[in-house]
Design a protein around this nucleic acid. Structure first.
Lengths: 191, 191
DNA sequence: TATGACATGTAACATGTTACATGATTCT
DNA sequence: AGAATCATGTAACATGTTACATGTCATA
C-alpha cells in the first residue's frame, strides 16, 4: 500500500469528500498532485475501502463524493497503530546552504532574503488557516471538530516561526565573520 | 538537472569525497540512497562537472575520490543564485495525526509515545553531530570551516526540540477533552 | 479577456527504493 | 557467529511530476 492511500483514508475519516477536495487538503501536509490521487482513489474503491455517491452537476464534471466503508475504517485503525516510517524531507534550500561558505556575500544575501520572504509568507498563510479553523468551529459546532488539522497546522506555523529566527541567526553569525561561528550558539527566546 | 545532482556538487565544494561519503553526508539533509547517487555521479563526470582520482585499496573496492572541476564550480554558482524550489515533505506521522480524533485513546497514546521517543533520539543524535563539528574544527583549523553543515545541523536540532514540545502540547490538549481545543494555544517558552 | 476555481481523468517521463551482486575487516 | 562498516555498481519495481485533455462559471 502506498502511504498516500492511507492519507486519503485518513482525511476521509473526518468527512466525505471529492478527489478535488482531498488534493487541496492533503497538500498542506503531504506533497502530492491530483494525477497521483485519482488513480489511488479508484484503487481504494476497487478494494472496497471507500465508496462514492455520484452528484450530477451541469457545466462541471459530475462529483464523486467518497466516503469510508467499514473495511476502510478497520484498515485505517490497523495502519494507525502500525510503525510509522521516517519523514522524507527534500528541501533544495538545505542543499544550497551546504555550500554557503563557498559563495560570495552577494549571493548569500540573495538566498537569505529569499528564504526570509518565504517563511514570512508561510507564517501569514498558516496563521490564517488556524483562524479559519477557529471560525468554522465556533460558527457551527455540529460535525467533528477538526482536531488533527488544527494540531498539524499549528506545527507548520511553529516550524516557520522557528525557521525565520534561524535565518536571522545565520545572518548574524555570517556577518560576524563566520570563521568563529562555533562561539555563536542559536538561542530561541520563544514568543 | 536532478536536484540531487546539485546537492552532490554542493557537498563536493567543501572537500573531495567518494560516493560512499556523499551518501552518508547528504542523508542528514536530503533523503537518498547510494543507488541513486552513483549513477548521478557518473553523469556529472560525463558532463565534466566533477572528476575523480582512483585510489587503490585491497580487500575493498577501489575508491573514486571525486572533486569539482572549474565548470562544476561555475555551474554550482549559477544554481545557488537561481530560484529555490519549495521543500518536499512527506511525513507519515502527519497523515496519522489527521485522523487522531477518530481513534481511541489507547491508539493515540501509542502514537504520541512513538513520536516522543523518535524526537528525543533525534535531539541526542544531532546534539552529538554539533559537538563533533565543534571538536573537528578546534582540533585542526586547516581546511574550510564546515559552516553550512553547522547551520543545517542546528536547524534540524531546533526543529526536533520544537516537535517534542509540540507533542507535549498535543497530549495536554487531548487530555483536556479536545472538544474545547480552540481555547488552548501552543506556547513556546524557548529554551 | 484572461486567469483561477471547479472537477475528473490519462500518458509520458523523471525520480526514488529495494533487492541483487561482491567481499574483506572490525566490532559485539 | 553475526552484524556493521567500507565501497561500488545494476535491475526491477514503485512512486511522483508534467503535460495533455475537456469545459463552465465567476472574478479581475
Amino acid at each position: 500500500m502506498n502511504k498516500l492511500s492511507y492519507g486519503l483514508l485518513s482525511l476521509l475519516s473526518t468527512e466525505p469528500m471529492t478527489g478535488y477536495d482531498l488534493t487541496s487538503k492533503i497538500n498542506k501536509f503531504w506533497r502530492s498532485t491530483h494525477s497521483a490521487i485519482y488513480p489511488l482513489l479508484s484503487e481504494l474503491e476497487e478494494n472496497k475501502y471507500v465508496e462514492f455517491i455520484l452528484k450530477k452537476q451541469d457545466g462541471k464534471p459530475d462529483k464523486k463524493i467518497y466516503n469510508l466503508t467499514v473495511q476502510g475504517k478497520e484498515f485505517l485503525r490497523k495502519w494507525f497503530i502500525s510503525e510509522t516510517s521516517d519523514a522524507v524531507v527534500r528541501d533544495e534550500m538545505t542543499l544550497k546552504l551546504y555550500c554557503i561558505q563557498y559563495m560570495d556575500t552577494e549571493a548569500v544575501e540573495k538566498l537569505l532574503n529569499e528564504l526570509e520572504t518565504r517563511y514570512k509568507k508561510k507564517i501569514e498563510v498558516y496563521k490564517n488557516s488556524i483562524e479559519k479553523i477557529r471560525l468554522k468551529f465556533s460558527e457551527n459546532s455540529r460535525g467533528v471538530p477538526p482536531f488533527g488539522a488544527y494540531v498539524l497546522t499549528q506545527r507548520i506555523l511553529n516550524e516557520a516561526i522557528l525557521d525565520l529566527k534561524w535565518c536571522d541567526w545565520i545572518r548574524d553569525v555570517y556577518k560576524n565573520n563566520y570563521c568563529n561561528f562555533l562561539d555563536q550558539n542559536f538561542k530561541d527566546e520563544g514568543r
